[in-house]
Design a protein around this nucleic acid. Structure first.
Lengths: 94, 94
DNA sequence: TAAACTAGTTTATTTTATAAACCAAATTAA
DNA sequence: TTAATTTGGTTTATAAAATAAACTAGTTTA
C-alpha cells in the first residue's frame, strides 16, 4: 500500500466510510451520514477524496426524474482497506 | 475512550509513537525519529500533544552535564492505546 | 578554534478538516 | 396554491493541524 492511501485512511470519517462500504453493495448519502456522524459538507468532501483516489465509486442517476446517488467500494478500495488494517495490526503486535 | 483521545491517536506519527512506547521502558528522541520517520520539528510537536493529553511522560535531566530526555508511556497512554485498537477492530468485523 | 553532530524548539507556511451557508427539487401542510 | 419542510447534496469560509525550515545550545571531533 502506498503512503498516499495510508494517509487517506488515517481519518475517522474516511475509514468509517470505507469500512461501512465493505459491508454493503451500495448505499445512500444519508446512510453514510449516519455511519460517520459527520456533517454533510464534511462528508461530501471526504467521499470526494476517496473517489478521486479510486477507492469509492459514485453513481448518479435518475429515479423517476429524481436524482439519486449510489456509493460503493471499488476493488482498489477493498484491498486498500485490508492492507491498511494489516499494517495497523503490525503496530499492535511488536 | 473519549473523542479527543480517539482523534489524537488517529495520526500516524502519534500512533506509531505510542505503539513503540508500549514496547519499551523509556526511549530517546532519536529512537522516536527512526520509528516514526518524521522530521524533528513535527515529531517534537506531536510528542508535546501526547504529553499534554497525559499519554506520554517527558523527563529531562542531566547526564554528566549533558541534557538528556527520556520519553515513556503513562498508564493512561496504555489504556488509551488498547481502547483505540479495540475500537478500530470493531470497524473491521461488522 | 572551527566544523560537525546531537537533541531538540520555535516559527512560518501549506494542507486539511470542519461547519455554515447555500442550492434545487420534491413533498407535505395550511 | 403557495408556503414550509425534507432530501440530497455542493461550495465557501474559517479554524485547526501537519509539516518543513530555520534556529538554539551544548558537545565532540579534526
Amino acid at each position: 500500500m502506498n503512503k498516499e492511501i495510508e494517509k487517506l485512511l488515517f481519518n475517522p470519517i474516511r475509514l468509517k466510510t470505507i469500512s461501512f462500504l465493505m459491508t454493503v453493495e451500495t448505499c445512500t448519502f444519508k446512510a453514510l451520514l449516519d455511519v460517520t456522524a459527520s456533517s454533510k459538507g464534511n462528508l461530501s468532501i471526504q467521499i470526494k477524496k476517496l473517489n478521486e483516489a479510486g477507492l469509492v465509486k459514485i453513481e448518479k442517476y435518475f429515479q423517476k426524474s429524481y436524482p439519486t446517488t449510489d456509493y460503493s467500494i471499488t476493488e482498489k478500495g477493498k484491498t486498500s482497506f485490508e492492507d491498511f488494517f494489516n499494517q495497523l495490526q503490525s503496530l499492535k503486535n511488536e
